[in-house]
Design a protein around this nucleic acid. Structure first.
Lengths: 232, 232
DNA sequence: GAACACATAATTGTATACAATACAAGTATC
DNA sequence: GATACTTGTATTGTATACAATTATGTGTTC
């Protein structure tokens, strides 16, 4: 795949589309924590000027997916262990509530979408694409927050899920992610049944489960070249 | 006060300092919801190019203090009534928890700072500067979140407090803000006593109180000229 | 060979120029 | 007189040029 393919892919890349593409790449662990994001390099990759790259990078820094240090540039954030715990504590505070509300508000359409997420996630795992599975699993949580019709809290959860992806890249312990599938399935079932307090409790235990699957050890963190990582 | 005074005030204005100045002006209701923020105008006021103004505006838009619409520019956000309720619901979910933790972690230094906030707020009210009093009251809440040593959640609360200021500008019903002073005093006392569950409960009822002081009616919303509003 | 100073390159920060878009006012046409 | 069209102005979007800062490499000295 050539450079032209990248820059012409979507006719004119906006800062939003670039931020989204980078975010996706980070979510899917194609770009790992610590990777330097050089403006010129990205500008050439996406076929725009540094101006729009800078806007995209600033967006991502506001949700703490990347870190910008003055005169030093941007790199993919690597949350400390304290931050990692904080993120999951915040999720344990917010998400059980959204699961409760979602159970009361979900339409059959919502349920279908949630089930589709689970299927897609399963397919990604089957296709040996754990990065994509992780991304889809995040979408699942975001979707529940949106079903709960609390866009403010949903926004917070979105950033927490995004940072969770970084945290998982750094501190994940378990090998198999299959544990999640059951949890998500059970959650959807209780939401479909309109059983709010059960959904709340399932979400809480699911998050505690994820939280406890983190470990102190730092991951190796080999870093791909930017161009390869973004050439999807 | 001349234009030069403004642009030379802090030698070289950075996008951060400008974002902070604008944020303060919005907090203190010197700039009201709906006000258009024109880049050229701000660039001249602060003596920098549009480039740095744009960065500042984007920061503020990420915490939803202002709204940027493509090719339409920025204006101070005016949250809908639904958003207003959401913000306070989110605060009712997060802040009682931080109050609880703060009660367990606060040092005597922290307590002193909280008491100083209350005094400053009282002084601002006495000086017939309700905007500043509101800002200081927000700082009080942010401070508690920081004392709780949960920087992730503290960040969320900061944005919620900021948006609360917009909401109060639009939907405030009561005349006197004195009700708050007692609530804040009692909160500090229970935090100083290390009584977590009492602090938690006081915070919850304080927020419910604030929430219930909102009303449907829209406020008049006369808008100052930008230059006057920012010439402090 | 290690530590330092200095020159050079790479990268980010800011200002400015120009292009694209939106808004308003006026003009023509029916 | 109402509507559609055109033109002009204000404002934002993007690219580029240059300044400021940081990183890198090379020699020199001990």
């Amino acid at each position: 795949m050539t450079k032209t393919d990248l820059s012409d892919r979507s006719k004119a890349a906006t800062s939003d589309s670039i931020a989204h593409a980078l975010s996706l790449a980070i979510h899917e662990h194609r770009i790992l924590p610590g990777t330097k994001l050089v403006e010129d390099e990205l500008a050439e990759i996406y076929g725009v000027s540094r101006t729009v790259i800078r806007a995209a990078l600033h967006s991502l820094s506001h949700i703490q997916l990347i870190e910008i240090r003055r005169n030093k540039g941007a790199s993919v954030a690597s949350p400390s262990l304290k931050e990692a715990h904080e993120v999951f504590e915040a999720r344990e505070l917010l998400e059980p509530r959204t699961a409760f509300s979602a159970a009361q508000l979900a339409t059959s359409e919502d349920i279908a979408r949630l089930e589709r997420h689970i299927e897609d996630e399963h397919a990604a795992l089957a296709a040996a694409d754990p990065g994509r599975a992780l991304y889809l699993s995040g979408l699942f949580h975001n979707d529940i927050a949106h079903i709960a019709n609390q866009s403010t809290i949903a926004g917070f959860i979105e950033t927490l899920v995004a940072r969770s992806s970084l945290i998982i890249a750094l501190y994940w312990r378990r090998e198999s992610a299959l544990c999640e599938k059951h949890a998500h399935h059970a959650l959807v079932k209780s939401i479909a049944d309109g059983n709010g307090s059960q959904a709340e409790e399932l979400m809480r235990s699911h998050l505690v489960d994820l939280h406890s699957a983190l470990d102190l050890k730092e991951r190796s963190g080999r870093v791909l070249s930017l161009k390869d990582a973004l050439a999807q």
